[in-house]
Amino acid sequence: MAKKRAAKFEVEIEDINLMPIMNLITLLIPFLLLSAQFIQIGVILVDWQSRARARTQKKEDENKRTLGLTINITSKGYDITTKEKGSACPSKTANGQPCIPVSMSGGNKIYNRVALRKFLYEKFWKPNKSNNSLEPDKLDRNIYSDWGKVTIRPESTVPYEVVIQTLDASRELPPEAKGDVSGNLACVFKKPQGQQEWQLTGNCMFPFAQLAAH
């Protein structure tokens, strides 16, 4: 009887058969590898200037001092104007040339965004940075009520890629500005979780871009 009972509990313990799980995982990995995105997608925030909004803006700005910085992207290059002084490069404009002309390379037009960034920094940001700020508590002390804003007006045939490059050039400070600001030169829009408004962090040149039809 005792022998019978002992025999009843003699169970051979075997290793768990992991092969089905292995098969499943080996199938899942290639599928996920194929569908995974290894590049990081980011965003650039912009505003669209409709004609109606442009008219309202004009009325609002009439009583305030505004810089009215506008970058026109034409087939010839970058043409920069301000509401206050007109063309940013009067001598070139008199000769019918843009402020930063395009160069040709392999039959393609190359828009010089490095030169544009440097131009905006030296001509507009550096001379005015002491009297203007993007910090919310200092906005009322700004000389220009529209400090940090830029209107970009591309011609209809300009490739979208050039518009993105122009947005980058006007938003971020050039390496020459390292001595003028504390911290790094990155300009980032962040949307804190649960909030609906974007917040600006970092050191920026003209981060509030408004796009308009030419």
């Binding site: 980011g42 925030l45 992207i73 039809a213």
Partner: peptide, 27 residues
């Protein structure tokens, strides 16, 4: 794509009262 096409999309969206836009880019 030419700017004209993106401008038409922006114009249409703003007509439907979409106010804020963000452009996708590769970082």
């Amino acid at each position: 794509v030419p700017w004209k096409l993106v401008a038409q999309v922006l114009y249409t969206a703003s007509y439907v009262k979409y106010k804020k836009f963000s452009f996708a880019i590769v970082k």
